[in-house]
Simulated scan of single mutants.
Amino acid sequence: MPSAAIDDYLKTIYHHTEWQTAPITPSQLAAELGLAPSSITEMVQKLAAQGLVTHRPYGPVSLTADGEARAAAIIRRHRLIETWLVREFGYAWDEVHDEAEVLEHTISDRLLAGIDERLGHPRFDPHGDAIPDAAGVVDREAFVLLGQAHVGHTGRVLRVSDRDPALLRALDAAGVVVGRSLTAAGRDAVRLDGDPVALPAGAAEAIWLTA
């Protein structure tokens, strides 16, 4: 199996449980990767044979210790590259995902180490996702999804999903960025510095705050 294909599967499984606890199902994995369920079943069986995932028929898929270590390594590459592109080349946070998807499979370990050192060993990428260290360890604060926060909850924006570039641009224009404090004011609204701000559709399911 191509290494990049394995990495994409492992990365998707890893990412699914970063901000919630339910393990990913084969149907969710198929939707995330845009593949047919039959293809997912075949690949999951191969990954299980290599000791990278655990899986039972029709049940969820989970990473083994080896699978999690490999997933953390490729996610570290991806997020360091995203941070590098933003800080060193002036990319916006909505522009870096696709570039990093390509570069994560091509740069050398030496270059990655140099990027990490030059950036001062960052702990988080431009979207607030934790960058695993060289040992695969991440440092993440307690969090709550904005859509599940009670009205009046005030927290710092920990993370914004990078799934939708248009949403990232809209949130940036509204001033809702990683590190900014805001107060939940209803399903599609927040308060920034006391002022009400209407959020674009989907924002409540894409923003995580400190708990």
Rank of each mutant, 00 (worst) to 15 (best):
L112R: 07
E18R: 11
V197K: 12
F89Y: 14
E68P: 07
R159L: 09
G120A: 01
Y58S: 12
A201L: 10
A170E: 15
P122A: 00
H97F: 15
V151F: 03
A184W: 02
E32S: 15
W19E: 12
A113D: 04
L119S: 03
E88N: 05
E101Q: 14
R76E: 10
W84R: 07
L119H: 02
E141A: 15
Y14A: 02
A72P: 09
A170Q: 11
L182E: 12
L146F: 12
L112G: 02
L192T: 04
T106C: 02
Q148C: 07
R163K: 15
E205Y: 06
Y14L: 00
A166D: 10
R77T: 02
D195Q: 13
G186F: 11
L52I: 06
T210V: 04
H153N: 05
T64G: 01
G34Q: 05
Y91S: 10
A203L: 09
A174C: 13
I40P: 06
A48R: 05
A201W: 09
A149E: 09
L35C: 14
R187W: 14
G194T: 04
P132I: 01
V157P: 01
G155R: 07
R70M: 15
A49R: 13
Y14M: 01
A113E: 05
R123D: 05
I81W: 07
V151G: 06
A149M: 07
V144P: 11
D8M: 08
G128S: 02
A173D: 12
D116I: 00
G128R: 00
P37K: 14
L33M: 06
R118I: 00
Y14F: 00
F124W: 08
R110A: 09
L145W: 14
E141N: 15
S161P: 06
L168G: 04
A184C: 08
W84F: 11
P26M: 02
L145G: 14
I131R: 04
G120R: 00
V102W: 14
L182F: 08
D8V: 03
A170K: 13
R163G: 10
A184K: 14
D7K: 05
S27G: 06
R76I: 11
V53C: 08
L167I: 03
L145R: 14
G186N: 09
S27I: 10
E141P: 15
V190P: 11
G136D: 07
A100C: 00
I75V: 13
G202H: 06
V53E: 10
R110H: 11
